[in-house]
Amino acid sequence: MISADRTVAAAGFILIYAVLIGFTDNYVRVIAAEAGLWQFHLTRSVMALTLLGLLVLPLRLRLRPVNPRAVLARSAIHGAAMLIYFGALAFLPVAQVAAGLFTAPIFVLLISRFAYGHHIGPVRIVAVGVGFLGVLMVLGPSAAGEASLAALLPVLAGLFYAMGNIATREWCPEESAETLLAGFFAALGVLGALGVLLLTLAPLSAPEGAAGFLQRGWVWPSQGFWLWTFVQAAGSLLGVGMMIRAYQVAAASRVSVFEYVILPASALWGWLLWGEVLTPMAMLGMVLIAGAGGMIALRAQAPLPA
Rank of each mutant, 00 (worst) to 15 (best):
I31C: 00
A115D: 12
V138F: 11
I120K: 13
L197Y: 08
E34W: 01
F225C: 09
L284V: 11
G291K: 12
Q223R: 13
A151N: 02
V8A: 12
L214E: 02
D5Q: 07
H118V: 09
D25N: 08
S112V: 12
G183T: 03
G195E: 07
Y85N: 04
A33P: 00
R60W: 02
P303Q: 15
V287Y: 06
V123K: 14
V8R: 11
G22A: 08
L272H: 05
A302T: 10
L201H: 04
A210Y: 04
L139M: 14
V190L: 14
L198H: 08
G87V: 03
G158P: 04
F225N: 07
V123E: 09
G293N: 13
I289M: 14
E208Q: 12
P93S: 02
L181G: 02
V108N: 13
V28I: 09
A234N: 06
L37A: 00
V46H: 07
A4G: 06
I77Y: 01
P207Y: 08
V231C: 10
V240S: 02
L15F: 13
T7K: 04
G285L: 14
Y247D: 01
T50P: 01
N67M: 05
R245Q: 15
F213T: 01
P93D: 04
W271I: 00
Q96D: 06
A151E: 01
I120Q: 15
R44C: 06
Y260I: 11
G140C: 10
L20S: 06
V135E: 10
V261N: 09
G293Y: 13
G164Q: 04
V249A: 02
E34T: 04
A48W: 06
Y247M: 01
G189I: 07
E208P: 02
A70P: 08
A4D: 09
V94Y: 09
V287P: 05
Y85S: 00
E259F: 08
M286P: 09
C172M: 06
V261T: 15
V30Y: 01
G189F: 11
A246H: 10
V28A: 04
V94D: 00
G291L: 14
L181S: 02
L237F: 11
A157Q: 03
G189R: 10
A9N: 03
M242D: 03
V277P: 01
M286S: 15
M243K: 01
L51E: 00
V56T: 08
A206K: 05
G291A: 12
M281K: 06
F160N: 05
L201V: 12
Q232D: 10
L204H: 10
P203F: 04
A193R: 05
L199G: 01
A18P: 00
R124G: 14
R60F: 04
A297N: 09
G235A: 13
A292G: 12
P58W: 03
G129M: 14
L298C: 05
P65G: 03
W218D: 06
H41W: 05
A202R: 10
S148V: 05
L59K: 05
A81W: 02
